[in-house]
């Protein structure tokens, strides 16, 4: 019945951001996470904000999806802001609430730090909004290739990730089914004492594990029957390709970083 379920928060589209090689997106975000901390004045913040907002706009992801991704962290952003406002006592007193004095330094600091936070989350959520989990998996597999030399099981890790992704909806359906079956036999998952509620989970978990093991066993057999013998000599249907678009974005991003170095104090 869970036809409408979405894994992660991917919003399908064909924008520039969607079409970028996932490795490019991951690399840029990785660097962005560091350079955010270099910003220390109005100009440098402006450059980063413009970059983040432009990315968001070109991705054509509806604003409400972006905001939905931010909901869990709004509290943190506001909390960080207030914390800085309260503890920083630099600059002039801007205004007073009751007996509490708010300093300009506090406001600026609070704003700067929460802005950093906001930018970080905006950009990283843009990755998951415009990239399917399987693309991210492929990118990780590709970027970890060098580790193969030290016998790190890169292929196996990527396969594990993609099979997990494949089975998330299946297992969610199964959880729903079993919890309904046990509820029909009188289990109450919602009310009662904590001890009772913990006990109520056993009739759910045991069947889930039993079935997950059975699935794993059958899946392994099906994979073997279809000639799976590990990553050696395997080819791939899905391929990652750097295009001119990626080159363009890298160049743009280099300018952003250069700009940042010129503007910061």
């Amino acid at each position: 019945m869970n036809n409408a379920m979405v894994i992660g928060q991917y919003v399908p589209g064909n924008s520039v951001v969607h079409r970028l090689d996932p490795r490019t997106k991951i690399t840029i975000i990785f660097i962005f996470v560091f350079v955010v901390f270099l910003a220390n004045n109005v100009w440098s913040y402006t450059i980063l904000t413009v970059f983040a907002l432009l990315s968001m706009i070109t991705s054509r992801v509806p604003l409400r999806f972006v905001l939905k991704g931010l909901t869990p962290v709004w509290f943190l952003i506001i909390f960080t802001f207030l914390l800085h406002v309260i503890i920083t006592k630099e600059g002039d007193v801007v205004f007073e609430i009751f007996t509490f004095q708010v300093y300009s330094g506090g406001l600026i600091q609070g704003f700067a730090i929460s802005m950093r936070f906001f930018l970080l989350i905006l950009v990283t959520s843009l990755l998951t909004l415009t990239t399917t989990p399987i693309e991210i998996t492929d990118a990780i597999e590709s970027m970890l290739q060098p580790l193969k030399k030290v016998k790190f099981p890169v292929h196996e890790l990527a396969l594990m990730m993609s099979i997990s992704l494949r089975f998330i909806p299946t297992l969610l359906q199964e959880t729903d089914k079993i919890s309904k079956a046990q509820a029909s036999r009188g289990v109450d998952f919602r009310t009662g004492k904590l001890k009772d509620r913990i006990q109520a989970v056993v009739p759910l978990l045991v069947p889930l594990f039993v079935s997950a093991f059975k699935r794993a066993e059958e899946l392994a057999m099906a994979m073997e029957a279809r000639g799976y013998q590990g990553g050696e000599g395997r080819t791939k249907l899905r391929e990652l390709k750097f295009t001119k678009l990626d080159v363009g974005i890298y160049i743009l991003f280099i300018f952003v970083i250069l700009g940042l170095f010129f503007t910061r104090n």
């Binding site: 399987i134 099979i163 899946l219 994979m223 799976y228 791939k236 249907l237």
Partner: peptide
């Protein structure tokens, strides 16, 4: 329990990739 790929085409390709 025999569908390996995350999409139809990935699953059909699995045996060929192997």
């Amino acid at each position: 329990n025999q569908f390996v790929g995350t999409t139809v085409q990935d699953d059909v390709a699995f045996g060929m990739e192997n």
